[in-house]
Amino acid sequence: MITMMSMPAPPDGVLPETAPKMRVENLNVYYGKLQAIKNASLRVPKNRVTALIGPSGCGKSTFVRALNRMHDLNPSVRVEGVVTLDDEDIYAPGVDPVAVRHRIGMVFQRPNPFPKSIFDNVVYGLRIHGARGRRHLMELAERSLRHAALWDEVKDRLNHSALELSGGQQQRLCIARVVAVEPEVIVMDEPASALDPIATSKIEDLIGELKKDYTVVIVTHSMQQAARISDYTAFFLMGDLIETGKTRDIFFKPTDKRTEDYITGRYG
């Protein structure tokens, strides 16, 4: 495996290297007896976008769900290995998974706004964590919605149901909802796969903005998307993390034959 820290100095136009925000070491995930992730290790650099690519069923969604302990919700899933956030193991005994998820937010494949008003959706996480006061919440909601590039489209109907929004708007609302609780890492599991091209490009622009303040990990089945928005890329195949590196290296000079085959379209 190529570690990012050992890579040569980046060429022009590539962002400087940053310290890892998260580290994954020897991660194994099992669904019952089926092993979905095999001994994967990855560094997630701070304030960068790391894309996970690979064919359907390769384990990339399973991998990211291990990053914020979402697998805890399913008793038939077993996770082994070390996942750190700022060098602290989030799977260590005594760690509260609720606190982990507060610091590592997640956006899902299908937009999943709650059947509540737009406003109640955005401030949901804030209320959970004890924020009160209509005016205070209103300010935070506006900030988050602006951050998610949704404010202008919804400012006049904040008390309408979130389910009235289009799919793309719903997904940006879900991003605003995550941004509102100010996590350190935002994990996105194919956030644009259910959206049309225009909504997709809005989400992509937004991800470029988000990395100023957050560390982003995004699962995508679109190599073009990975190439457009990510700084680093990890390639998964059948539960194995085959290769990781700077996105341009993965795309232009992959070291593993299987990566090259996938990039050039020889896998489905």
Binding site: L73, G105, M106, F108, Y124, H129, V181
Partner: peptide, 9 residues
Amino acid sequence: REGSMALGA
């Protein structure tokens, strides 16, 4: 449920 839990609820 996942959306809520992923926000730290």
